[in-house]
Nucleic acid binder design. Sequence first.
DNA 1: CCGCCCTTGTGTACGATGTCCACATTCGGG
DNA 2: CCCGAATGTGGACATCGTACACAAGGGCGG
Lengths: 214, 214
Amino acid sequence: MAATGNGKPKRDTYRHGDLRNALIEAALELARQGGPEAVVLRAVTRQAGVVPNAAYRHFGDRGALLHAVSQAAMAQVARTMEAEQAALPPTADPVAAARACFRAVGTGYFRFAQEEPGLFRTAFHVPGDMAHAADDTAAGVSGKTPFELLGEALDGLVDAGLLAEDRRPGAEFLAWSAVHGLAVLLIDGPLRGLLPSQAHEAGQHVIDMIERGI
Amino acid sequence: MAATGNGKPKRDTYRHGDLRNALIEAALELARQGGPEAVVLRAVTRQAGVVPNAAYRHFGDRGALLHAVSQAAMAQVARTMEAEQAALPPTADPVAAARACFRAVGTGYFRFAQEEPGLFRTAFHVPGDMAHAADDTAAGVSGKTPFELLGEALDGLVDAGLLAEDRRPGAEFLAWSAVHGLAVLLIDGPLRGLLPSQAHEAGQHVIDMIERGI
DNA sequence: CCGCCCTTGTGTACGATGTCCACATTCGGG
DNA sequence: CCCGAATGTGGACATCGTACACAAGGGCGG
C-alpha cells in the first residue's frame, strides 16, 4: 500500500487484476508525450507498479504492446473525427450536410495530429501497423475505424451527387493520401511549427484540393 | 591487412583516411535493407573496420549520423526524379512538356519509395529530418533538392498556363502532401504489397487528383 | 471444505546498444 | 625536427529487451 519513494503506485495484492489494460494505459501516456520510441517496456511496467517481465504474460514482446497502443491511438483518431462531425451545425440541406460530414473527417484527422502528435505518430509511424487501420480494435465509440468513417463520408458524397459514382472506387486512398501526407508535414516536416490557425487553413486547402480532384 | 575472420575489411594504416564518408556509406547500406532502425552504430563502425567510438570523431551522436544518412537518401530521391525527367520522350509542345515534367517528379518519388523502401523511410520517416528537405546536402546531380525540383515543375505549370498564378503559392505543399501520403500507404500502409503495376496506377491517379485539384 | 494446478507476477541473468573517459597513434605546420 | 591537434583504441557503464527458473494465489474438481 505504501509508495516506494518514487511515484509508482505500489499495490498490496500479488495479482494486479487488470494488468494488460494498465500497461496499455501507461504506454499510451508515454507515447502521448514522446511518440512510439518513448514506450519503453521497463518504464511502462514501472508505471504499472510491476516488474518488467510481467508484461510478457500479456504481450509476446515489446512490438505486440506497441501494436496494441497503436490500435488504441487509432481509436482516438476515430473519436476525434466523430467529435468533429458531432460538432457540426445542423443543416437542412442534405447536400451541404454530406459535404460537411466529409470535410469533418479530414479536419478531425488534422486536429488530432496537431493536438496529440505523440499519439498520432504512434498510431501511424510504426512500420506495418498502418495496415491494421481497419481492425475493430481501432474503432471509436461508434464502432467505426478512421478508415470506415472516411469510406462512409465518401458514400455520402456519392449519395448527395457530389461525387460521380465511377470515381468512388479507390477514392479513400486518394483522400487518405493527401490528408495523411499533410498531417506528416505538419508534425515532422517543414510545416511543423505552423500556428494552429495557419495549420487549419492548410488543412482546409488540402481538403479543397481533394474535393476538386477526387 | 589480413581479415579478422568475419567480413570486415581490416586496414593496415592507423588512420582510415576517409572515415566519415565510409561510415555514411556503410550506414546507407544498412538503411537500404532495414530502414532507419537498422543503422546501428556498432554495426556501421564494424563495417568500416573501426571501433565503435571512432564514429564520435565525425558525428556528435547516432542521431547526427542518421541525419547525414537521411540527407544522402534524400539526394537519391532527387536523382530518381531527375532520371525520370530525363527519360521523358522529347516533345515539341511546351505545354505537354511542362505537364510531363511535373508528373515525372511525382512518379520518381513513387518509384524510389517502391524500389528502395528502406532508404525512403530513412529519408522521411525520421522525426524532424524532413524539415531539412531543402538543405543542399539533399540535392541530386543537378544540385536541386526534391523540394526544389517540385517547385520548378510547378513554376513550369504556371508558365505553360496549366496552373493559375494565384493558385501557385503553397501548391508545393498540396502536391507533396498527396504524393508523400500515398508513398507511405504503399510502403507501410494497407496498400503495401500492391503489384508494381497497380502501384504505378495508383500513383498516376494521385497525380491526376493533384492536377485537377491543385 | 480442501488440495491441486494453471495463470500471473518475481528474481536473476545475459547480450546488445549508445555513450563517456583516458590513452595511443599519427599528421602537419612552426 | 618536434609538438600539438586530429583521429582511432580500449575499457567501462547504464539501459534496454528478453529468457529461464521460481513463487504466489485464485479457481476448480472432489
